[in-house]
Each structure stands twice: as C-alpha cells, then as structure tokens.
C-alpha cells in the first residue's frame, strides 16, 4: 500500500472519528461515523484484506449505520446542548489521554518488531478469503462462534427488556 494512501485514509478516519465525538447534532455524528467506517474499509483494501473491507462496508457502514440513522430520526433527537465540563474531569481525562499517547509514541519509536516488512506468503496463489474465513469459523474456531451466538441472544433480550414501553 502506498504510504500516501495510507496517510490519507488514516487522517480521514481520525478526522471523521473526532467529528463523531465533537458534533452536537446526532445525525451529523452518525454520518461522520459512516465516513470513518469507509476510510477504515479503504485501509483494509490497502492491506489486501478485501473480504473484511467488504464486510466493513456492508455490515457497519450499511446495515448498522442505517439502523442508527433510523433510530435517530424516529426518536427525533435534537442537537445536544453544549455542556460545561468540570475542570477536574477535563484535566484528569486529558492527563490520561496524553499519557497514553506519550507512552504509545515512545513505545513505537523503539519497537523493533514493527519495523519489519510483511513476510512473503508461501506460493503466489491468491487465497480465497471467504472460504478461509468460513472454514476457520466453522471448524477450528467453532466454540468461540457458538459463545458469540449466546452473546447475541443475551443482547437481544437486553434490548427488548430495556426498550419496550410495557413488558408483557
């Protein structure tokens, strides 16, 4: 992947992600999130991970975001009021964030393993992404997949319990 494209999409993604948090209008936030997802998908394409890129667009940018927007429109959310931040919270939060970034920068500058290039894959044959992912999920990684199924069931129950106007 060309470094120019990498930096372009990374900056786009970070910019959109920031705007999700900073925007006071929920619709604008949601749309920025779509932008961030698309830029992330572009990064996946750059890594030759086409399957994940497509799933990223279809599932996140497509299905999940459309749902988000529906909910926002249906609830008729107004732009959030500007809040005044507690100075202590703000200070504490920025110290933690700054410390984290500083640590990460210091770490990455001397992290030898990260300076290696990608190893060349044995055989020049293109790998069938979908087939491989499917095989992994349903053969070797089946147990975590099943537990994920239970997790989604529990989440579904939660949505109904917490959002239905009157329980029956």
């Amino acid at each position: 992947m060309s470094p120019v494209l990498f930096w372009l999409f990374t900056l786009l993604m970070l910019g959109f992600a920031t705007s999700v948090v900073v925007n006071r209008n929920p619709v604008a936030s949601a749309l920025s999130l779509v932008g961030a997802f698309l830029a992330l998908a572009a990064l996946f394409v750059g890594l030759d991970a086409y399957f994940i890129a497509v799933i990223q667009v279809l599932v996140y940018a497509g299905a999940v975001m459309v749902l988000f927007l529906f909910i926002i429109m249906l609830l008729d959310l107004k732009a959030e009021q500007r809040r005044r931040f507690n100075i202590v919270t703000l200070l504490g939060g920025s110290i933690v964030a700054a410390g984290f970034i500083a640590e990460l920068t210091a770490l990455l500058s001397k992290f030898q393993l990260g300076k290696r290039g990608f190893p060349t894959l044995p055989g020049a044959k293109p790998v069938d992404d979908v087939y491989q992912v499917g095989m992994t999920l349903f053969t070797t990684h089946n147990l975590p997949l099943q537990v994920t199924g239970v997790l989604i069931l529990v989440a579904t129950i939660g949505v109904i319990i917490l959002s239905r106007r009157e329980l029956k």
Binding site: L151, V154, L162
Partner: peptide, 8 residues
C-alpha cells in the same frame, strides 16, 4: 457474554 448480561 458476562459483561453484556451484567449491563442489562
């Protein structure tokens, strides 16, 4: 799984 059921 544990955390999400605790949220609810």
């Amino acid at each position: 799984l544990v955390t999400i059921s605790f949220y609810i």
